[in-house]
Write a protein that binds this DNA or RNA. Sequence first.
DNA 1: CTGAAAGCGCTTACAG
DNA 2: CTGAAAGCGCTTACAG
Lengths: 361, 361
Amino acid sequence: MQSPANKSQAAPTITDVANKAGVSIKTVSRVMNQEPGVHADTREHVLKVMAALKYRPKLSARSLAGARSFVIVLLYYDPSAAFVAGVQQGATLRCREAGYHLVVESMHNDAADLEQQVSRIISTLQPDGMILTPPLCDNRQVLKALQDSRTPCVLVSPAKDIKDQPSVRMDEARAAEEITNLIISLGHERIAFIKGATDQSASALRYQGYLRAMKTHGIAVDKELVHQGDFTFATGVDAAHHLLSRSVRPSAVFASNDDMALGVLAAAQRLGLAVPGDLSIAGFDDSPASSLVWPPLTTVRQPIAQMARVAVDMLIAANRNDAESATEPDLHHVLAHELVVRDSTSKPKAVTAANAAKRKR
Amino acid sequence: MQSPANKSQAAPTITDVANKAGVSIKTVSRVMNQEPGVHADTREHVLKVMAALKYRPKLSARSLAGARSFVIVLLYYDPSAAFVAGVQQGATLRCREAGYHLVVESMHNDAADLEQQVSRIISTLQPDGMILTPPLCDNRQVLKALQDSRTPCVLVSPAKDIKDQPSVRMDEARAAEEITNLIISLGHERIAFIKGATDQSASALRYQGYLRAMKTHGIAVDKELVHQGDFTFATGVDAAHHLLSRSVRPSAVFASNDDMALGVLAAAQRLGLAVPGDLSIAGFDDSPASSLVWPPLTTVRQPIAQMARVAVDMLIAANRNDAESATEPDLHHVLAHELVVRDSTSKPKAVTAANAAKRKR
DNA sequence: CTGAAAGCGCTTACAG
DNA sequence: CTGAAAGCGCTTACAG
């Protein structure tokens, strides 16, 4: 049924390139894999023929014949849309640069057959590596499936580092400390803190950062100004109502994520407080919403896309080192974050005035 | 170097299954592809052996040997994180149900070599189908690369439907009409509208919906109450300042997306207007931020994940029909949206009072 | 209803 | 520096 015309339209194979270049397919293979041991002229000639024919090696053939699949899997379970999108953006771009492709799979963290699901994906796809994001990167079943299959794997923002298990993260505590320092440097002393969900490691780390900054500056932490939240908008609102009903109000609130900070902002505005005039507010995450309110929030930007890029790089390196059994250079990467100072924080006008008044009495 | 112990650990192949089941690999192949012409007992027995061996066919081998790759590619260029995440969620889950895998690739819509990039991905991956989201689904270069390769492709929310080109969308105009109806039913008459970016088809459609509802209810549209925006927070703020400085203010604003609605909300609050008391506000998209402000926004939820599921279904069906050359049943799907009524809209208290006062004079 | 043979397009291990 | 042969794990086209 296939006419010659159709046949000529078929995608060129390595054999087509070899024939036209007058070399063996092995030489073409060497060139496209950038292996040594090919004469410069030969290499150049083959390269030209490949370009002329618009030759693209098929992933399935390379994968079946060789040890690599050029596939990296991103396993995730709905953290925030912004987080997934960020990881993906970084991972997919880096993959393309390196000739890899990113397969994404969304899994329920509490599925009973999670280990099976993961091992099935690995067996079917035989990926060269896997990227895990919270909460899956802290899930025993997932980790077990990965280890059994000996698939290289990088954890992005895991709760804690595991020995011999590569990871990428930012310094949550340091970032929280810096944002607290910023608020203190503005002149605040009564700085409230809203904690995040107790089952997430970031919560404790961010709280540590807050405490450290307060201590460094010799400011006593009033326990009444520390409130438990769970990273949701609603608990931010709640916390604000509690904190702002104190006889002596805080002049600033550091909510350990943006959603809670937005809750504080909403509550403050309902109470008729000016932000940042009457109350400075800082968040954490640089979520999209943080710049879609007035005033836009001072917050911390996680290097999400960059973490994903690094994760991909580590996986590719792991594949190369596999044969050489070289020791991994850096198992645990910590990437720089960024303070995003916007309009929700300022000098404590009201408090300053009040303090001045007090002193006069 | 490989000990027998290691060998037995190797992933089982179709040959292993065939040997253990005492049949040919062709029979195993028939069973796993659910092909007819296998005795029920044989089928059952093979199935048991596959399960016992935890046999998983390798995608690379199936892809190389056969006409299908079991891979679907999602091509996107950073619309909103929420949109990408939604499409992905729907697509990845549906893919897993059907034994497919989703490869994601992020591309710059304005890249000079876009057509080449897309055709390279197709040649390399040989996907069974492709999902395109805005703005790529309206990009000529992308569409051309797809057609040249004859890869089945579904457009999600394209600017307009193309003949013979499958698509999935919601009814933007209808949704905008419904939200306008809602506002009208609350008692509003001076309803402002903020248009979206002129280069996006949704802008015109949503405006049409607004006009249609106003006309249906016999309310004249005051052109001073229609303001051009571009879907950003900043233009929402601008629009609000213009609209609210009118001698007779609107009692409600329908911003044609949430980001602009949030801008209106921020501006209104700075001006000391109560929302929804003094001003009702409605948005469009149900963005994450829309419920992270006070009051939470009345808006429209697009069936994003559902659109992606349908897109995957259409691609899988296209692959099946390929051989039978059956005609596609529904080329253009329109999915139901959902009105999300929250607290940013209410009866026009202030205006009602004012109107009452006017009448008394 | 079942199977033997050939082949998909590459890489591997070996030879020269 | 280069290549001929075998094989990866499946599906296809054909036979019985």
